[in-house]
Design a protein around this nucleic acid. Structure first.
Lengths: 208, 208, 208, 208
DNA sequence: AATGAATGAGGATTCATTCAT
DNA sequence: GATGAATGAATCCTCATTCAT
């Protein structure tokens, strides 16, 4: 009852698609702060249309984030078929960091649980699971330390982006340096286990 | 001459201190978005009082950020005297990540150049320099890879915080895991240099 | 492209008109200092509505001043067709002084260049030009002294209002006395030229 | 009981004088809008000191306006002794217009009755009386038209300033042109009386 | 008396959201 | 369904005035 199914009228479908595209691009460039007004303008539709398709700004944002997450999950799932686990894991992390680098809103949302709808939290959880699939294969083969989890890997994508963030204006590829460094940390053979148990993301609304 | 020095009157000094404390705490908890009105309310003073001490919100934020940065720089400088370079570097990074973990506004400011005053940029630059001092000693002794710079280290502090961010509500120490992983990446002996040249932070205003 | 054209939707048109009316009346009565909030209240709309129609207070003021100036320019242009140049000039000055007398904001704007947008400056310039047209005809026929310009005439409209200002509450027609006196000064045959060259209004923003 | 006599303590006397000077200069340059804070700063005293000497901003303004008016009244009174009535009248008007040209706040106050205290209104009344003295002498000698009054003359001072106002930045002497024109209007022999009875300034508070 | 710290009402402006057309 | 007009809460900031030091 809360999630009214998207209309199937052809113009509405088209508009919904258009809005998602434009909003995605706009949020990506400028973060979650962009106003609905600007998105509507860029899309060439009225603000009312945005709100018809997405009852609140949060809903619109969530839809876009879900798309992004699904894409990433899809890519990761595909990589499970790669017969070189390390290459697959690296490809996944590369794609993941790139997604963050490209999208300021994605960074905002992942970094601020208060911006996450239940659906987004669920998708993040699924992402962690595929990541775990990829990680497990590399782990089993001894290519990454035994105590690195899929959640670790997923979380580090955002961390790598943020490490590089202050450099990205001047050098859009700066993240590659930190991805490599992180990768080396994951694969390092230290003999010492990581000093803190791995995390699990909270699936429920945080009542803070 | 344009920036009048803080008053030395005892009541004003007390209030200024109170304001900095309350504002620092508030910014730390909720990020740069908190309104001056709320800070005033929490401090039990009128809005006008905040503006008397800090002519703009930006000034207040900058003062707090400078304090934080100076503290960190001071700690790092002290660690230069430690005779174990690796221990010193690790201690510095620990302190740095803790600073980010404790303070959402610090994360906001470091991650968004548009929020940085020239003074803040300068302080960040100084921080990178001390970080380089600490890193160089560890590097010279072969404890960290030869191509890791102080700026790398400083940048990674923020990255580590962001990696752990989604876990911190449930587990405030989660960052320790990622600090260790990062540290291992820095110290890993791979034989391969990092794939992208190290960055330099821009010192001037970015005219974007 | 930056200044979106006023909406043509009937309710918006009505509201825009209402807003202009109310704002014009309010500005007229109380000068440029009235707050947007008060105008909105008097118009029975929300503050946001005012800002939707006029993005800044300055824009609203400019729109009203332009209307006023255009009206005056239109009247003056019409008077160019009058076959009695002196009667026409007097009619123009009468209309002009009346415009000032009726409108405190008009006085404020004309008297304070910092309140003038480029469009307003341009309109004032056009007003001076029509005034010159009217003046020239009277001058040619020897009815006004040879060295009185259209700009002189336009400027004196405001002067006459200010002369009478302190009397207007008690006697709303008091300006007629000073208009006559000024007119007599303009038409006086003294044989002596005016002691200072005529002025030209600056068309560009004053960088003071 | 409402007008506490100025203190006679030497430092207080000195401060009062200093404040009047600085405030007069500041008001003159920038009009009645200047903040008390700026005046205090320019005078090198605390805001509290300003309010000790002048309980409200209005009081300070009134004191300055009174000084200005008294000076003008004094000069006019002196000119009553000049044996050339026309020269004297012209000298008075010159001094008067200059006073307005020099002082934006004077213009503001004269033009806006709501800014006038009872004392200021009284002084304006006295000014009109001396002006009448000067005018009468010129009138008797047939040098100005028979129906021009001292109040007319006094009022026109402000009008002349406002006529020239838009030119004054570019040409600080522009008012001379309009003073002459006005003077010629006053002295014109037209045979026609002015079309509206002379005004009298209201002495009481206007309950608008 | 002098100071300048504190106050809070008031002002312009933005923006998510609702609703009449 | 689409539109964009209306709304009003929220934000930063200014300034006359009061009052503790």
């Amino acid at each position: 009852m809360s999630a009214k199914p998207p209309s199937t009228r052809s113009d509405a479908v088209r508009n919904r698609k258009l809005l998602l595209d434009v909003a995605a691009r706009t949020f990506a460039e400028r973060g979650v702060e962009v106003s609905i007004g600007e998105i509507a303008q860029r899309a060439g539709v009225g603000k009312g249309t945005v709100f018809r398709h997405f009852p609140t700004k949060e809903d619109l944002l969530a839809a876009i984030m879900l798309d992004l997450l699904d894409e990433l999950i899809g890519a990761a799932t595909g990589l499970l078929a790669d017969d070189d686990p390390v290459r697959a894991l690296r490809a996944f992390m590369t794609a993941g960091v790139e997604a963050f680098v490209r999208d300021r809103a994605f960074c905002d949302v992942i970094g601020r649980p208060s911006l996450q709808s239940q659906e987004v939290r669920d998708a993040i959880h699924r992402l962690c699971e595929v990541a775990e699939g990829l990680t497990a294969r590399a782990r089993e083969q001894g290519a990454v330390r035994p105590d690195v989890t899929g959640t670790d890997v997923a979380l580090m994508l955002s961390g790598i982006q943020h490490t590089a963030a202050p450099l990205l204006d001047a050098d859009p590829q700066a993240w590659r340096r930190y991805l490599e460094l992180t990768f080396d940390g994951m694969t390092a053979v230290t003999g010492r286990p990581l000093p803190h148990p791995p995390g699990r993301l909270t699936l429920e609304e945080n009542p803070s």
